[in-house]
Write a protein that binds this DNA or RNA. Structure first.
Lengths: 364, 364
DNA sequence: GTTGACTCCGAAATCGCTTTCGGGAAGGGT
DNA sequence: ACCCTTCCCGAAAGCGATTTCGGAGTCAAC
């Protein structure tokens, strides 16, 4: 009758007051069961859905979470972003909450965004990702009193909520695994140390080297950007070493795939002369030749967990420090991690010495 | 002074009324320039941001767009989803609008979602993707009077807004290109015909075959799911033909990568015995060996266009039929499309005949 | 000097929902 | 008969913006 189903319409229809209807729907204790049943039936019949804006205005909450998309190094994050977001959105939908996507394009824009959110409060909590080792966002968000959970730790996250993979453990295990296959010269292609996860992975690799009692001197590290080209270039540098490593721990799958190309370009076969392990567990890795051995982290559930942690934070059910979760990555054995082959790199060195001799070079 | 910067605070500070301040900020004509300047200065100084919920409640609009994530065939869409969404979010941010992510997990859930949006109106427009040839969503959304634009056409989109790539043209060009290289038996690994884009690509391939005056009888088509495994299986079937095709147009890059593996498994080299062209322009394609020739569509700008079309629709500036845009895909020459090599597949057939003779088979 | 047009601003209603406060009706105890 | 609970529900005041309506003031014109 009265247009779309507002609270008022239901009230008039049942000869009740608006406030009674509202409280009935919200299951207040001071409304009789009979009335509640009546109201609910009517609401159902009319297909009533509360006006979100009115509700949120009155409540002072927004029931909306924001996901801050990483605005650089698109390459790496792209792969699992959509899956993560789908996980979050699905979990939120269960509570009637919404997920909005924020895409700042610079640090300045990101800070401006935070300011705006702090003022308008039209987003009641944030998920940030791509955390830096020294990440100013933690302080800013704390000062602005915006509830947030970070996907990845940082130096100042003792008192904040976060969900992270145990990168250090993962890379320690990865290194140990390679050592167990018989490798003695295990290199690491690392990411920029500003990224906390890159630093953690570095540390994990070092730990693995030392736990396997390998000689640190034969464990070279090459830092690179998180991209295909970066991985390729880093691998070229590793191949130029004398002797080169027989195995490489790569900071990410994309970097590992770049490294694979460098290996092929050198006339070698990834997983034969040089073993490789990536990180991320991307599906792509299984499609290439040879398929990339990697460590995978559970992206599907991560989204859900982030969402639930943040809701509980916003609602005040739990404190930030109660929401710190560390998950494990698991090794996915495919084709690029095998025992070292004999005769390499000695054979190459022989070739090289010959070449050098031919060109007048002399080996020590 | 008075807590966060509400309209009221500014008013009191300037000894003005709330309504004056509001109209000043919204640039009403009946406010003097001097007052406007004063108000704006104060607002700026206090860092005023309007409360979205109050504003949207009063306005009756939500200034929020929804992107309906495709809830199946995750594999394919994943690759460019995040880029598309980033494009949308960025464009929307310019207008002060938000983007929320909707992830229905079944047709029923999707319809329910539409109903809810129609009632609450807390999302004022939708972008839908993954359109079917016969897509009931078009009718439903029209009936519910929810403004929307589809990323991809359908059978009933004459009166609706859409942004689509000219799939047919792309595949006609792709086929022509292969024919120009000298191929005479050009196959197509097609996607499920329920997807409109899959049907369009099929049609384009057929057109290319006929325009190049090739024999339709030697232009086999294999339908498959949009996945790596699907592409691989389809290619296996194509390889079993006698004679097999010398070139294949693949409905997507992922399918093409699957096909490449089947080719390798058969002891052949993609791009040598059998040429391949994919579609989507994924970066991954450039990372594999040999790099995949493909056709790329501009994802970066697509998001922006979708957002702008939808805003204009919601605002009523333009009608649905005014917002139909067809963009072109462009060929990305990499390594898997080359002229056919001589001696193949005749050589293979010889081998096969021998085999058959040995096992007692007889050729007609 | 009354009228009229025009400029600029304030009061108040409105959007739809939540929540506090208070009061009527029913019931139980002295 | 009176008082005090307890159980329900209605009235009304927000939430923070927008927008309509009308009125105070200025100035020119007749």
């Amino acid at each position: 009758m009265g247009g779309p189903a507002r609270l008022k319409v239901i009230a008039e229809r049942l000869n009740l007051s608006q406030s009674t209807v509202s409280r009935a729907l919200n299951d207040y204790q001071d409304i009789s069961d009979r009335t509640k049943r009546l109201v609910r039936a009517a609401a159902n019949e009319l297909g009533y859905q509360p006006n979100m804006h009115a509700r949120r205005l009155a409540l002072g909450k927004s029931e909306t979470l924001g996901y801050v998309m990483p605005w650089q190094d698109r390459q790496v994050t792209e792969a699992f972003l959509s899956e993560l977001m789908a996980g979050m959105a699905k979990a939120l939908a269960g509570y009637g909450w919404d997920l909005t996507v924020l895409v700042p394009h610079s640090v300045a824009e990101e800070l401006e965004l935070f300011q705006r959110i702090a003022r308008t409060r039209h987003i009641s909590g944030l998920v940030i990702s791509r955390t830096y080792s020294d990440d100013m966002r933690f302080g800013v968000l704390r000062d602005l009193q915006i509830p947030f959970v970070s996907h990845g730790r940082s130096n100042h996250c003792d008192e904040t909520a976060w969900l992270d993979v145990d990168n250090e453990l993962a890379f320690a295990e990865m290194t140990t695994y390679l050592a167990g296959l018989g490798h003695r010269r295990i290199a690491h292609i690392a990411g920029p140390e500003v990224y906390n996860f890159a630093r953690q992975r570095r540390t994990g690799w070092r730990r693995g080297i030392s736990e396997a009692a390998l000689d640190p001197a034969s464990a070279p590290l090459e830092e690179t950007e998180l991209s295909f080209e970066g991985g390729k270039a880093a691998m070229v540098r590793l191949l130029a070493l004398d002797p080169p490593p027989t195995a490489v721990c790569c900071v990410s799958d994309v970097v590992a795939i770049g490294a694979m190309q460098a290996i092929r370009d050198a006339g070698l076969v990834p997983g034969r002369e040089i073993s490789l392990v990536g990180y991320d567990g991307l599906e792509i890795g299984a499609w290439i030749e040879p398929p990339l051995t990697t460590m995978s982290q559970p992206q599907r559930s991560a989204g859900r967990q982030l969402a639930e942690m943040l809701i509980s934070l916003v609602e005040g059910t739990t404190g930030p420090a109660d929401n710190q979760e560390l998950v494990r990555a698991s090794l996915v054995r495919r084709g690029t991690a095998n025992p070292p082959i004999s005769g390499w790199p000695e054979s190459r060195q022989a070739v090289r010495q010959t070449t050098r001799a031919n060109s007048g070079g002399v080996d020590s």
